[in-house]
C-alpha cells in the first residue's frame, strides 16, 4: 500500500509565494513534450492543459475525479520541483476566506505575491450554465467583477494558448469553441472573479457540510462535483471555485488548468478530500468501485460541448 503523505499549511510565507510564482513562470519556458504535434503546445505548462483537455470527459462526474486530480496536481508540483527548483510547499486557496471579496484575496489582489488580479472590469451579464445531461435545466450565475484581461500581478502578460473548447458566453447558454482548440490560439488570460458565486457555493459552510454530511466516497465526490444524478441546481465547491475564478480559460472545464489559479483551487479540493479521508481513514481509502461507474455516456456531453468532444475525446 502506498501512502501519500500530504502536508498543508494555511499561510504561505511571501518569499515562498514568490518562489512558487517563479517556478510556474519557469515551467512556462520549458519545452513542451507535445512540441510539433499541436500548435498550442508552447511549453510544459501547456502540456498539463492539453492532458486535462484530453481526459476531461473521463475525470469529471466520474469515480476517478478525486484521485485523478490528486495525481495531476501532484505531478504539476513535482515538475515545479524537478524542472524549476521549487522547494516550498504546494499552496492551496482556502475558498471560505474570500467569499465576500475574492479580488481582495491574497491569491487575487494583483500584488507581486498574488497569482494576478481580477480581469479588467467590463460590463457584462452573468453566465447561464446548463446542467450536464439536461440542457433545459438552467443555472444562472450573477455577473462577476471583471471579465477582461488580467492586467495586474505576476501573470498580467501571460499568454493562454490552448482552447477554448466549451467557454460559456455571458448572458446565454451558448459556448465559444475554437475550430482548432489545439492550434495556435494565443490570447490574454481573462478572469471574472465572482463574489456572488462564492457566497453561494464556496463558503466555509459549503465545505464543512460536504465533509460532515457524506459518509461514503460516492456521495462525497458526487456532492463536491454537483453531479446532476444526485443534486440539481448546484455547482458544488469544485464547480463553485472554478466559477469564482471564471474568465478564459478558467470558465472552460476542458482547459481550466490554463489559469495558474487552477492548481491552488485543486490543491484545496484535494485538501478537503484529505481531511474527509482522515476522519475515517479505515473506510475512506477507496475510490468509487468502478472508474466508470459514475461516468456519463459520451453522448450526454456531445450536445453541450459540440462535435469536438464527441469525435475527438
Amino acid at each position: 500500500m502506498v501512502i501519500l503523505t500530504i502536508y498543508y499549511r494555511r499561510t504561505l510565507p511571501k518569499s515562498e509565494r514568490k518562489q512558487y510564482i517563479a517556478a510556474v513562470k519557469c515551467l512556462q519556458t520549458k519545452p513542451s513534450l507535445f512540441a510539433g504535434q499541436f500548435g498550442a503546445a508552447k511549453s510544459m505548462y501547456d502540456d498539463f492543459v492539453i492532458i486535462h483537455l484530453f481526459q476531461t470527459l473521463n475525470i469529471h462526474l466520474s469515480g476517478t475525479f478525486l484521485t485523478w486530480h490528486r495525481y495531476f496536481t501532484w505531478v504539476f508540483e513535482d515538475k515545479l520541483r524537478t524542472q524549476c527548483g521549487y522547494t516550498g510547499k504546494m499552496p492551496y486557496w482556502e475558498w471560505g476566506l474570500d467569499v465576500n471579496s475574492p479580488r481582495n484575496s491574497p491569491v487575487f489582489d494583483g500584488s507581486d505575491t498574488s497569482l494576478g488580479g481580477d480581469g479588467e472590469a467590463i460590463t457584462h451579464q452573468g453566465l447561464i450554465l446548463t446542467e450536464p445531461g439536461d440542457p433545459s435545466a438552467l443555472l444562472p450565475l450573477p455577473p462577476g467583477t471583471g471579465g477582461g484581461c488580467v492586467k495586474t500581478g505576476p501573470f498580467k502578460n501571460m499568454t493562454v494558448n490552448v482552447g477554448p473548447i466549451a467557454l460559456s458566453q455571458y448572458g446565454s447558454t451558448n459556448y465559444t469553441s475554437s475550430p482548432d482548440p489545439l492550434g495556435d490560439n494565443a490570447r490574454c488570460l481573462k478572469r471574472d472573479l465572482n463574489p456572488g458565486v462564492a457566497k453561494r457555493y464556496t463558503t466555509f459552510g459549503n465545505t464543512t457540510r460536504l465533509i460532515l454530511q457524506n459518509q461514503n466516497v460516492e456521495l462525497f465526490q458526487a456532492i463536491m462535483q454537483a453531479d446532476p444524478r444526485y443534486v440539481h441546481g448546484e455547482l458544488g465547491v469544485h464547480g463553485g471555485g472554478h466559477f469564482v475564478i471564471g474568465g478564459d480559460p478558467g470558465g472552460d472545464p476542458f482547459i481550466s488548468p490554463g489559469d495558474p489559479a487552477f492548481y491552488l483551487h485543486h490543491a484545496q479540493v484535494d485538501r478537503v478530500y484529505w481531511i474527509w479521508q482522515m476522519l475515517d481513514f479505515q473506510n475512506r481509502q477507496v475510490r468509487s468501485p468502478s472508474p466508470f461507474l459514475l461516468r456519463f455516456p459520451l453522448d450526454a456531453f456531445a450536445f453541450i460541448f459540440g462535435p469536438f468532444a464527441s469525435h475527438e475525446c
Binding site: 498543508y8 476566506l97 466555509f204 465545505t207 484529505w274
Partner: peptide, 23 residues
C-alpha cells in the same frame, strides 16, 4: 462553527492527528 470556519479548522486538526498516526 460551521459557517465561521472554526469547525473546518477543528476537522483539519483531527485529520492531522490521524495523519500523524499513519506516519
Amino acid at each position: 462553527e460551521i459557517e465561521s470556519g472554526d469547525a473546518l479548522g477543528q476537522l483539519q486538526q483531527m485529520a492531522e492527528a490521524q495523519a500523524n498516526v499513519i506516519a
